[in-house]
């Protein structure tokens, strides 16, 4: 049997990275900002959204894509805010890639949206590897998870553009050292903004929302 060897010499994620770049170009034309929200399960992505959307909805038109392996619990919750919400099922997959994100965006009316928030699958490992085409990546880390997470999941903190430290109202119950945590994060990703928030009490949410609103403004102006 005659074989022919073809050199490929490409990273395995190169196709996804190209798809993601294409998506970002389209989003720029549409003037829609895509935020990829990632965290481990239970850190409070959905409750953070429930606080964030009412803050921003007076000035920004918001859509939400809820990614889950197989449920619509979060989509039901978030639809109460009045935002356009769609549910994406990853069908057993632990992350979203750029193609799945594109399928979700096709279901939304991007011309009528300034900001789309993608709530990724709860997982600190796999979603970090796959560029979704987002403009910025936000990572939520909650106080009970501990300040050592940047040491254990360095890639997630390396791809983050902003960090939310949620459940800060419970800080007294845990040995979470925000200063040590900040140092660890900044070793991986120098200078990224870190907002301590409580999605329960609303503490710190305004500062985070101001940051996000400014990011959307800059994206739409350039």
């Amino acid at each position: 049997m005659e074989f022919k060897v073809i050199e490929i010499k490409q990273g395995i994620l190169s196709a996804n990275d190209r798809e993601a770049e294409g998506l970002r170009r389209e989003l720029r034309e549409k003037k829609t900002f895509l935020l990829n929200l990632m965290s481990s399960p239970g850190s409070g992505k959905t409750s953070t959204l429930m606080q964030t959307i009412p803050h921003l909805s007076p000035t920004l038109r918001i859509g939400v894509m809820e990614a889950d392996i197989d449920s619509d619990v979060d989509a039901r919750t978030v639809s109460a805010t009045g935002a356009q919400v769609i549910q994406l099922h990853t069908g057993g997959m632990c992350h979203l890639d750029a193609e799945m994100t594109r399928q979700g965006l096709n279901e939304l009316d991007l011309d009528a949206l300034d900001l789309v928030i993608l709530e990724n699958v709860g997982n600190l490992v796999c979603p970090a590897e796959f560029d979704t085409g987002s403009v910025k990546n936000a990572v939520v880390l909650s106080v009970p998870e501990g300040d050592d997470k940047p040491l254990k999941y360095p890639l997630m903190f390396t791809v983050a553009d902003v960090l939310l430290v949620n459940k800060i109202d419970a800080a007294a119950c845990f040995d979470f050292d925000l200063e040590v945590f900040t140092q660890r994060v900044h070793t991986l990703r120098p200078g990224i903004p870190i907002f301590p928030i409580s999605a329960k009490t609303g503490e710190g949410v305004e500062a985070w929302c101001n940051w996000l609103r400014e990011q959307v403004r800059q994206w739409q102006e350039t």
Binding site: Q10, I12, A15, N16, C94, H95, C126
Partner: peptide, 22 residues
């Protein structure tokens, strides 16, 4: 199932790379 997603990514890159071959 992280590896499964990567297998699909691999298939995609290879398929695209072979598209020009007859």
């Amino acid at each position: 199932m992280h590896e499964l997603g990567l297998v699909f990514q691999m298939a995609k890159v290879i398929e695209e790379s072979l598209a020009g071959e007859e």
